[in-house]
Amino acid sequence: MNLVAFWIFGGTALLALVLCVTRRNAVHAVLYLLGAFLAIAAILFGLGAPLPAAWQVLVYAGAILVLFLFVLMTLHPPPAMKPRRARELVLPALVAAGNLAGALALVLAGSGGREGLPGYVLPPAALGRALFADAWIGVEAVSFLLLFAAVGAFWLGRREDPPKERP
């Protein structure tokens, strides 16, 4: 992927993310996140991962964020985001900024003089084989995980009380 294109998409994603996490309106935040995810999908495509790029759009942007919006819409009254006084934020913000700076510094510390990534593209068919032939047990496990997440979500989200046991 071209370095300039990479940083154009990357910059867009970062900007959208910063806007996302600072919104008071949750719907706006989710929409900014949608933008960021789309930009990241483009980067994934550029890094030789067409199938993850497509799934990034379909699942992250298409399903997960829609789920967020859906839950937001269900809440009555909609959650009020209380304004926070700046002084409450200073210390957590300092800590978070410190972490970000430390992490970036650690990544930067080793860079310099590296070559670009090789042009590697993993076609969807190859990914599918790797996923379902080699990592099949992981797929099975994750399918159970999804199932039980659904069971749990169903239980927690149900409105009525559980039926009583018959003696």
């Binding site: 409450e88 957590p92 800590v95 430390g102 992490a103």
Partner: peptide
């Protein structure tokens, strides 16, 4: 900054962040 935070989960998260910060510092 009379109070850092008025909620316990925030306190726990802060401790998490601080711990991580210490680790990153040590790694640096």
């Amino acid at each position: 900054l009379s109070r850092l935070s008025n909620g316990s989960v925030s306190r726990y998260r802060l401790a998490l962040g601080l711990g991580l910060l210490g680790m990153l510092g040590w790694m640096m």
